[in-house]
């Protein structure tokens, strides 16, 4: 920018230009109103200074019509900005169905990502240009926040739950990735780079990283290592619910209630199995709380999700 002084951040996602349109409209509105008020106050201060010859007759300390009109005008303007901001915001909950799903794990003090093909990255994230990307976020220890200024997006990663953020990168390049939620000693060093590449280059990059194991594949291994398959497998002696296609399906519970098997349900069922017991089964499953970490939990969830035909998990709020 001018003389190397940054005035405006780069715009590198489909979201960025839309957020900026609202931002600059607000900026223009604020500048006009702020400067008008400043002009008014300065103007009055000069015109009506002590000893000035200005006309002071007909002064009133109340003007109902004026007060009503500025109240109503403020309301209308406020509601316009509210509606605009909210419309852009609710799209956060609705990622496109064909989005690339990347998992992100925040821990003190680094970001760990795993590409759909299983390639792992630390404090680096490679994404293709022009393709929707969903990042499912989890946190190992404290709250972190995934923030890419050039994309105008931010989402906290909260321990004990999975959150999502999605974007479509539009400009190839190298962009800052920050942790925006204060997370302890090295908070300001927790970050890195998001690299946006043309699809061919992205594909080439993925290949150069080697055919890593996908998250779901690691999850499947873990599923066997931890002994889950011993009960949930097709040929097991212990009667446990089959997990094929479970994700996104309603599950009848012992207490006559029904829940949708979303990420929250699966997470709780692994860590706190006695909380919601599927109807018709004995509450015999042990808790894996403390035995697996947040990263391993992400693998198991990815594996369970991969057993379902649904294309994407990002639609769950």
């Amino acid at each position: 920018m001018s003389f190397g002084i940054p005035f405006f951040p780069q715009e590198a996602s489909s979201e960025a230009s839309q957020v900026d349109a609202l931002f600059y409209t607000l900026l223009a509105f604020s500048a006009v109103l702020g400067l008008a008020l400043t002009g008014l106050v300065v103007g009055y201060a000069v015109k009506y200074r002590v000893g000035s010859p200005a006309d002071r007759t007909g002064q009133r300390s109340r003007n109902m019509w004026l007060e009503m009109s500025w109240t109503i005008a403020s309301l209308i303007i406020a509601f316009i900005f509210f509606g605009w901001g909210a419309t852009l915001f609710v799209r956060r909950d609705h990622p496109p169905a064909d989005a690339l799903e990347i998992t992100g794990l925040g821990k003190q003090w680094m970001w760990e990502f795993r590409q759909p093909g299983g390639q792992r990255e630390i404090n680096e994230l490679h994404v293709p240009v022009g393709k929707p990307v969903v990042v499912s976020l989890a946190a190992q220890d404290v709250i972190h926040s995934f923030f890419v200024p050039a994309f105008r997006i931010k989402q906290d990663a909260v321990p004990g739950r999975t959150t999502h953020i999605w974007f479509i990168a539009t400009e190839p390049g190298h962009y800052h990735l920050f942790c925006a939620q204060y997370c302890g000693t090295q908070h300001s060093e927790m970050g890195g780079w998001v690299t946006v590449m043309a699809p061919e280059q992205y594909a080439a990059w993925l290949n150069s990283q080697g055919e890593g194991e996908t998250l779901a594949a690691s999850g499947e291994k873990l599923f066997r290592v931890l002994g889950c398959s011993g009960c949930h497998g097709a040929s097991s002696k212990v009667r446990a619910p089959a997990l094929e296609g479970i994700f996104g399906r309603p599950v009848a519970l012992e207490n006559q209630q029904t829940v949708i098997a979303d990420e929250r349900y699966l997470r709780d069922s692994i860590l706190i199995p006695k909380k919601e017991i599927a109807a018709g089964y004995e509450p015999v499953m042990p808790s894996f709380d403390g035995l697996i970490d947040e990263g391993e939990l992400q693998m198991l969830l990815a594996y369970l999700k991969s057993l379902s035909p649904q294309p994407s998990a990002g639609t769950k709020p």
Binding site: E15, Q18, V19, L22, F23, L26, F29, S30, L33, G34, L37, T38, V41, A78, F81, F82, W84, G85, A86, L88, F89, R92, S145, F147, P149, R152, I153, K154, A180, Q181, Y182
Partner: peptide, 26 residues
């Protein structure tokens, strides 16, 4: 009066959801 006005106007940016997502915690 001046400072409160310019601080308050910035509040509009923060109340507007999509903009807040970007400038929150900055």
């Amino acid at each position: 009066l001046g400072l409160f006005t310019f601080g308050g106007l910035a509040g509009l940016f923060l109340a507007a959801l999509a903009v807040d997502v970007h400038v929150h915690d900055t």
